[in-house]
């Protein structure tokens, strides 16, 4: 029986008439890396805000660590960063982290360690307000790591950063994930989720569309893109094939063929040639998470 860290039960949040999160249920188990995927405004941050005690729940509930403690006590075992890094502008990085230690009731001995992880050790005595956005975001991660958290919650951690900053943050996250820390990552960037996460929850307009393993979400048989000179006969030929789910004409002479069973490009080429169709273009692809996502959310 895997250890459940967080469980959401029919969580709902309404702001006036609009419903930000609707009847959302899923659970987070120890050791996995979860992604919450959704377009902007789909309720990701609101969901995280609720489990992090800053947004009141309209209905439904959530449980930390199988409901063994109060939310604010549970949060002491959690590391979380939300959209923008919020620290005291006049305090140095080190003092800001000391304050977090006092709130979380943990020893200050870990400060140097986490500052080293995010490469801020040489700037630790500078005031927070002098930091660049990338540095602020890294300090936020350092702060979230102070207590060796049971789970790390990251809300759009690379938002607004330059490519170098994005790369640094991703490397840090990968390193943390590699150490076996449970991670919950909210993002609208698919390759981010695809590269890091093992599980994914897709939401749109506050509703859950999919929850499960990333590789299972990607379990289709892929598609073939082909071009042929005489298109008219070719489509009637395709209509008669049983391994084809459907096909679309994506450009004037190019067809995208979705497969419903495993079928290789070579076999397909051979079949076409035998029937007298000479392909001028042939490529077989797995659907990317992005295409899956667009399919789900459109």
């Amino acid at each position: 029986m895997p250890e459940t860290i967080l469980e959401l039960k029919n969580l709902t949040k309404r702001f006036g008439k609009s419903t930000a999160v609707s009847d959302l249920s899923f659970s987070i188990e120890k050791g996995n890396v979860y992604g919450i995927l959704g377009p902007n405004g789909s309720g990701k941050s609101t969901t995280l805000g609720m489990v992090l005690n800053v947004i009141n729940v309209t209905s439904g509930s959530f449980e930390w660590f199988s409901d063994t403690m109060d939310t604010h006590d549970a949060l002491k075992k959690v590391g979380a960063i939300i959209e923008s890094p919020n620290f005291y502008p006049n305090m140095s990085a080190k003092d800001n982290l000391k304050l977090v230690c006092k709130i979380k009731e943990i020893d200050e001995g870990n400060i140097e360690n986490v500052l080293k992880t995010v490469e801020l050790l040489d700037r630790q005595h500078d005031q927070f307000k002098t930091y660049s956005l990338g540095m602020k975001q890294r300090l936020a991660i350092a702060s979230a790591l102070l207590n060796n958290p049971e789970i790390l919650i990251l809300d759009e951690p690379t938002n607004g950063l330059d490519p170098k900053g994005i790369h640094q943050i991703r490397e840090i996250i990968k390193k943390i994930a590699h150490n076996g820390t449970t991670i919950l990552l909210a993002s609208h960037l698919l390759d981010e989720v695809e590269k890091i996460c093992t599980h994914v929850v897709v939401i749109r307009q506050g509703k859950k569309l999919y929850a499960g393993r990333v590789d299972e979400m990607n379990a289709s048989f892929g598609y073939i893109e082909a071009s042929v000179e005489k298109l008219d006969n070719f489509t009637s030929f395709l209509d008669r094939l049983d391994f084809i789910d459907k096909f679309d004409n994506i450009e004037h002479d190019q067809i995208r063929i979705f497969l419903n069973k495993d079928y290789s490009a070579g076999e397909f080429n051979k079949l076409c040639f035998e029937k007298g169709f000479v392909l001028t273009h042939l490529i077989k692809r797995k659907e990317s998470l992005e295409e899956q996502f667009l399919k789900l959310t459109n």
Partner: peptide, 17 residues
């Protein structure tokens, strides 16, 4: 204004505290 209240709560301070 610094939005540190939000951060305090996320870090595990309760509203009452």
């Amino acid at each position: 204004t610094n939005r540190t209240l939000k951060q305090n709560l996320i870090d595990g301070l309760s509203k009452k505290e």
